[in-house]
C-alpha cells in the first residue's frame, strides 16, 4: 500500500508516494537522486548514511521513509548556500581532512550538528560527537583538527604534533 508523504529536503518541498517498507536512505538515493548519504553498513553502525532531520543527525539506513513525513531534512547537498561552502567544509578542505572521502558527507553533517550546539568544542567533545562516523582512512586526527579550527576553538590534543605547517 502506497503512502503519500511530504517533507522539506534541502529547503525544497518534496511530495511523493512510497510504500511503507521503503527505507529513507534508499528513497533519498534512488528516488530523489540525492547521493551524498552513502550506504556503508546498512545497519546503523557506520554513520555514512547520516542526514539531518530537523537539525539532528539520524542514520537514514535505519529510518523508514514514511517517518520523514512533515520533517525537515538536510543532506550534504543542502549545506552550501549560494554555491559557497560552509566554514566547516572550507576547514575540511584546508586541512585535507579526508582521504577517499566516502565518510565525509556523514562526518561533515555530524560536525555541523555539533557546532550548532557547541560552537567551540574541545578535542574530546569533537571525538565523541563524530565517534559514530567510521572513517578507515584518516585516523581521524585531521578531521578533529578541521572541526576544531572552524571557530578557532581549543587546539585538540594531537593536532600540532601532526607537524603540519600552516598553509598559505
Amino acid at each position: 500500500m502506497k503512502k503519500k508523504l511530504s517533507f522539506v529536503l534541502n529547503d525544497r518541498k518534496i511530495t511523493l508516494e512510497i510504500a511503507a517498507q521503503e527505507v529513507l536512505l534508499e528513497v533519498l538515493r534512488d528516488k530523489l537522486g540525492v547521493k551524498s548519504p552513502k550506504c556503508g553498513c546498512d545497519r546503523g553502525d557506520c554513520g555514512t548514511c547520516t542526514v539531518l532531520m530537523n537539525g539532528k543527525t539520524v542514520r537514514s539506513c535505519i529510518v523508514l521513509a514514511v517517518e520523514a513525513d512533515g520533517q525537515r531534512l538536510t543532506t550534504l547537498e543542502g549545506l552550501m548556500k549560494d554555491g559557497q561552502m560552509t566554514p566547516l567544509q572550507q576547514s575540511f578542505l584546508e586541512h585535507n581532512s579526508f582521504q577517499c572521502g566516502f565518510c565525509a558527507p556523514g562526518v561533515i553533517l555530524a560536525a555541523t550538528e555539533l557546532l550548532e550546539r557547541n560552537p567551540k568544542p574541545s578535542g574530546d567533545e569533537i571525538k565523541e560527537a563524530i565517534s559514530g562516523n567510521l572513517c578507515r582512512c584518516t585516523g581521524y586526527l585531521p578531521i578533529v583538527e578541521a572541526i576544531a579550527n572552524v571557530n578557532n576553538a581549543l587546539t585538540p590534543p594531537g593536532r600540532e604534533r601532526l607537524g603540519k605547517k600552516v598553509r598559505s
Binding site: G47, T57, V58, I62, E113, E128
Partner: peptide, 9 residues
C-alpha cells in the same frame, strides 16, 4: 548508548 546519531532516535 550508541553514538549521537543513534541517541537522536
Amino acid at each position: 548508548v550508541g553514538s549521537v546519531g543513534i541517541r537522536n532516535r
